Amino acid sequence: MDLKFTEEQHILRDMVRSMVEDHSTTAVVREMEHDKIGVPTGLWQQMSEMGLTGMMLPEEYGGIGLDMVDCALIYEELGRGLAPGPHFVSSVIAVGAISRGCSEQQKAELFPAMGSGELIVAPAWLEPDNGFGPLGVQMRAENDGDTFVLNGVKRHVFYARAAQKLLVLARTGDAEADVDLFLVDTDAEGVTLEQQRSMAYDTQYKVTFTDVAVPAANKLSGGWSNWHDVLMDGCILQAAYAVGAAQQALDITVRYANEREQFDKPIGAFQALAHYMADAQVDITGAQVLVWEAAWAHREGKSVARLAPMAKLFCCNANRDATAKCEQIHGGYGFTMEYDIQLYFRRAKQQQMNWLDSRTLEDMISADILDTDAITIVNPFKV
């Protein structure tokens, strides 16, 4: 594995860091909490102008066609600023699914607008009381000739109000893997949005589908296999985001520990607190290397069946543990809304539970490392 970044990659990282510092300040993050739309205008415009909304699109569709290492560097910087907005759901997950499952004509129609940030597509995947695997998708899509009729409820649909289209997972048969993906207009008749609240104060919705008619042409190919591959890409970038957030939380805490005094000396001089920060830095550095390995393997065309879930599991755990230590170092101040560290602490826990939770990731990793011919592994995610 080559961990030497090119001059262009260093420039890219510096550009994104500068953008985040200017347009994803903690004031912007706070402003977006519980916002109905959740898209900060300045940040989204800058992402579009820099080509980041098309970072995973080939140049023929108006994108810049970055590889996974480039994207991981970008997402680490976005994590530092807790960058709000639909970039991950639309420019990563939806773009990945459409790339794998749509016709060339559909790509030509959708990708230029998605690459410019004008079109936002939000995945609608999870359902009430159901899991992350294919059997967790119980919402039905009944074939009615030239259309499919959707009925059911989706939860935790991020930025649904900002999206013009939804990428909906629905069951088309009774076999475990009989799950397909559909493009549905957000304003289609029968689609109802209800905003949800979360510990991260982010923008997500419950979406109800009542006899929603979808043209058969809007069904993507690849089904659950398509979705699985898209989520593996997402795991790597979620892991990179977690590393950036954890490092920024620690940097904030180090500054606080150098400024805050007790008994006539900075609290960072106390060994117990100093060791907390040392342990956090060790975990973050290890997590960062794992992200780079997963991103490098993806770029080189190697399997990430183990590395991608490992990266998300370890990095999200490291983020949660590091921000918890940072909260403790801040003492009572850390739990007040006026201090920024709570922004990182709340989001770290939510990130562990979104886009595959820890138990599901552990199932996926164990199924890969154990001899599945000799032992039966219960993996609710993969079919």
Results as ranks from 00 to 15, higher is better:
G117Q: 08
I284R: 06
D185P: 02
G190Y: 03
V230A: 08
G133N: 03
V157K: 08
G173Q: 04
P309W: 04
T285S: 14
V230Y: 08
W355P: 00
Q288D: 08
V92A: 09
G133D: 09
L135D: 14
K325E: 00
M114R: 08
L43Y: 00
S48H: 03
E194Y: 05
D211T: 01
E109W: 07
V16C: 00
E8G: 05
D340S: 11
V157W: 02
Q46Y: 00
L150H: 05
M19Q: 07
A170E: 04
W296Y: 11
M68G: 04
E21I: 04
A308R: 05
T208N: 09
H87N: 11
I252Y: 13
V149A: 06
H156M: 14
S366Q: 14
A239R: 09
Q204F: 10
S90M: 02
D363N: 14
I64N: 06
E59M: 12
K36F: 15
V207K: 01
L52E: 04
S48K: 01
L57N: 03
V207D: 02
T41R: 14
L3D: 07
A245M: 14
E60I: 05
Y241G: 00
L166Y: 10
A83N: 03
D211A: 13
D229Q: 15
E127R: 02
H23W: 09
E127H: 02
T336A: 10
R306D: 12
A278P: 00
L356M: 14
L12W: 01
A242L: 07
R30Q: 12
T41I: 03
L73S: 02
E77Y: 06
M55E: 04
I341H: 03
F345N: 07
L52A: 03
L73R: 04
A94S: 15
H330L: 10
R347I: 00
L193R: 02
A216Y: 01
Y159H: 15
E31V: 00
S358D: 15
A122P: 06
R197A: 13
N151T: 11
D211N: 15
Q105C: 05
F182K: 08
I236L: 10
A274Q: 13
